[in-house]
């Protein structure tokens, strides 16, 4: 399967940076838990044993420490923001780096005896594997971090939270890890659609260069407008944004999403087969 070979190849190309990203995330989060928990324990000791504040009063003032709280510290948000930024950047780099430099690898990729759309699929698969990989690692990290917190802070001073509660309390994590499986598919489905549209726009640019950049932007904007059209149109013609019932809206958006994805793949197929230029 050439597709799998290409995916493997793309993954291997990114793996070093990826491991660095994973490393930073793991180290920073675990360090964050240890540092913050120790700080808190320090505060507890200071207040209760030195200043002789009653325990209840201390808790009233400072509250218990919890993983949910920690996820909102820079130790967590920093590396996660970094990973997001890196992957967003990589969305572009995954295509453009094949053209850049004196070793124009795109020649080789386009000359592989396989359907060229496989390049498109392999790149999108790689992006998704990388994203889901980070999510998976985060899901593995949370129980571990919970354990560290449990070891450092005694029971009375911490709120015991389940993984789901930590995710909900963090606020942002529930975007990547919604608690319902269907929502997971919806969020990543929308993500998939956005990436497919972006890749199509990139292929426009790669095919027609400056003119293509314009076409790509027009394409992206059109897809966005189409996707939002049920809301925009109802708002524009004055019947109100809630003209459709939520489950109708869901089905309409689902259909529009599928149309946008299908159209983008069709256009990408055409561009990469007939219009792309080295």
């Amino acid at each position: 399967m050439n597709y799998l070979k290409l995916v493997n190849f793309e993954v291997n190309r990114f793996i070093k940076i990826y491991i660095v990203l994973l490393g930073i995330t793991m180290v920073s989060q675990i360090a964050g838990v240890i540092v913050k928990a120790n700080q808190y324990v320090g505060d507890v000791n200071q207040a209760i044993y030195e200043e002789l504040t009653p325990k209840a009063e201390f808790l009233e003032m400072y509250g218990q420490i919890s993983m949910g709280m920690l996820t909102r510290s820079m130790w967590f948000t920093g590396p996660i923001a970094l990973c997001i930024a890196a992957l967003l950047f990589y969305l572009f780099l995954i295509w453009y780096r094949d053209w850049f430099g004196k070793n124009t690898f795109i020649y080789r990729l386009l000359m592989l005896p396989t359907a060229r759309l496989n390049l498109f699929w392999s790149k999108i698969t790689t992006i998704f594997l990388m994203v889901l990989g980070l999510v998976a690692v985060q899901l593995l990290l949370l129980p571990l971090e919970n354990l560290f917190l449990r070891m450092i802070v005694s029971k009375d001073f911490r709120t015991e939270l389940s993984i789901i509660q930590i995710i909900e309390q963090s606020g942002y994590m529930s975007v990547f890890i919604p608690t319902q499986l269907l929502e997971f598919f919806i969020n990543y489905g929308i993500g998939f659609m956005v990436v497919v549209v972006l890749f199509t726009a990139i292929l426009f640019e790669r095919s027609f260069r400056f003119k293509g950049m314009f076409l790509g932007i027009v394409y992206g904007v059109s897809c966005t407008l189409l996707f939002l059209s049920p809301i925009l149109i109802t708002e524009l013609i004055g019947v109100g944004a809630n003209y459709f019932y939520p489950n109708e809206l869901f089905l309409i958006e689902l259909a529009l999403g599928l149309i946008i994805v299908a159209a983008s793949i069709y256009v990408s197929h055409f561009l990469i087969k007939r219009k792309i230029t080295v």
């Binding site: 430099g101 004196k102 070793n103 124009t104 690898f105 020649y107 080789r108 000359m111």
Partner: peptide
């Protein structure tokens, strides 16, 4: 691409 091979003026492999 299994019948024709092209050797461009720059090498087509990753450095």
């Amino acid at each position: 691409y299994e019948r024709v091979a092209f050797i461009p003026d720059a090498i087509t492999m990753l450095p």
